[in-house]
Nucleic acid binder design. Structure first.
Length: 385
DNA sequence: TCTGGGGTCCTAGGACCC
DNA sequence: TCTGGGGTCCTAGGACCC
């Protein structure tokens, strides 16, 4: 029996900030943008203490500040520090890669700063209980990094990923009950009590766990797709599993239709892919604190952003084959223009000029809120990835 | 309330070619 | 005249995720 495990760190960004500033422990901490709650920007992560007041990821910083002020809470706002999270994340992934299961190193598939799938490596021996192994993972990560986590276990990646969400819910529910009863206050989020931060969803329990839930509970279905499915009479995961494949394909496309049906049935890959991630492209975008009215400023900004992205792709040594410009007008109207290059290049002057030239294809008479440039790179050379 | 930044993949329409 | 059928490439936009 091969299991897939999904590891997800608790409050990763806020946790990293608190670790390097212990005096913030127990305080409402909000990390986002440049750390100035009067600026344009959104919340990346809020600590549990801030979440209690309705502050959450994706919320505008100004709204978060207003909520906390209304509750008369003195919160700490911090800027996003990507380099610090890169370093902390790398340390966690190192711990995971160092683990053995069934006598051989595990495979680790990194999903972002704070998530990874873990699977048994090739030629593994007897694996034993996946729950026991999940506890080993959590203990090892805490020991080396002081970061707590939840671990989901499944027959495939989809199930494991969803199981992690349930593990977190269970931890948070238990904490809320304990706080209500006035006990366990010092345990903190993600308390390492055995079994608390793990959860299992398997082929066997799929419908019992997921069948009655709305389709948006699935990993890959958001509000828009859930709404479209609802117009077809498909509301729950079980509805989706039973849906007519022809209807799904006809309505949502030849690739998306079958994929949605597989999601409903809890079917997905169980192969943990440890191949290092290779980006297709890189981009930078910038929301201006004050909308740009002067088109000369717009052109200068595009040139500047383009040159930054060129530096990013040069670090990978792969020239660009496509240039894309993104533009957001006031109030929030977004469009893109792109151009495939006649030949690949890394020349900053050429690429910046290409990006600026794309401005000729948009209206120049409205204030600009955001500009972005993205460069798509040539495929990496065979065997060099 | 007023909406970040970095990505990926899919769809659809038009151009173009055989 | 009153209209083929594919296939591929390019572009713009949509949706989703962390």
């Amino acid at each position: 029996m091969a299991w897939v495990l999904h590891v997800d760190l608790d409050q990763f960004i806020a946790a990293v900030e608190v670790l390097r500033r212990p005096e913030l422990a127990g305080l409402p901490v909000v990390v986002g943008g440049r750390g100035d709650p009067t600026e344009r920007g959104v919340v990346s992560t809020a600590s549990y203490e801030a979440r209690r007041f309705g502050v959450g990821s994706g919320m505008p910083l100004r709204v978060a500040a207003r909520k906390l002020r209304a509750a008369d809470v003195d919160a700490v706002f911090l800027p996003v520090d990507g380099a610090a999270y890169d370093a902390a994340s790398a340390e966690v992934m190192d711990v995971l890669r160092g683990l053995e299961w069934g006598g051989v190193p595990v495979l680790v598939e990194v999903l972002g700063w704070d998530e990874a799938f873990v699977g048994a490596g090739p030629g593994h021996g007897e694996l034993g209980s996946p729950v026991a192994f999940a506890e080993r993972i959590r203990a090892a990560v805490v020991e080396r990094t002081r970061l707590t986590s939840a671990v989901g276990i499944g027959d495939n990646k989809l199930q494991a990923k969803l199981a992690t969400g349930f593990a977190k819910q269970r931890v948070e529910g238990a904490l809320a009950r304990e706080a209500g009863a006035g006990i366990g206050e010092e345990a903190g989020p993600g308390g390492q009590e055995r079994g608390r931060g793990t959860y299992v969803i398997s082929d066997e329990s799929w419908y019992a766990e997921m069948g009655a839930r709305p389709t948006a509970a699935l990993w890959g279905i958001g509000k828009k797709t859930a709404d479209r499915l609802a117009t077809l009479g498909i509301v729950t995961v079980e509805d989706l599993a039973r849906a007519d494949p022809e209807v799904l394909a006809g309505s949502l496309g030849p690739t998306t239709g079958p994929w949605l049906r597989r999601l409903g049935r809890g079917v997905a890959s169980s192969e943990v892919d440890a191949t290092p991630y290779v980006a297709r492209g890189h981009g930078r975008e910038e929301t201006f604190q004050v909308d740009l009215d002067d088109w000369a400023d717009v052109e200068r900004a595009v040139d500047r952003i383009a040159r930054r992205v060129v530096a990013d792709i040069e670090a990978e040594g792969r020239p660009a084959v496509r240039v894309e410009l993104k533009l957001r007008y006031r109030p929030f109207i977004t469009l893109t223009r792109s151009h495939k290059l006649p030949e690949a290049t890394s020349d900053p002057d050429v690429l910046a000029a290409e990006a600026v030239a794309l401005l000729d294809r948009v209206e120049k008479d409205r204030p600009v809120r955001l500009l972005g440039v993205r460069l798509e790179m040539v495929e990496p050379a065979e065997g060099s990835g």
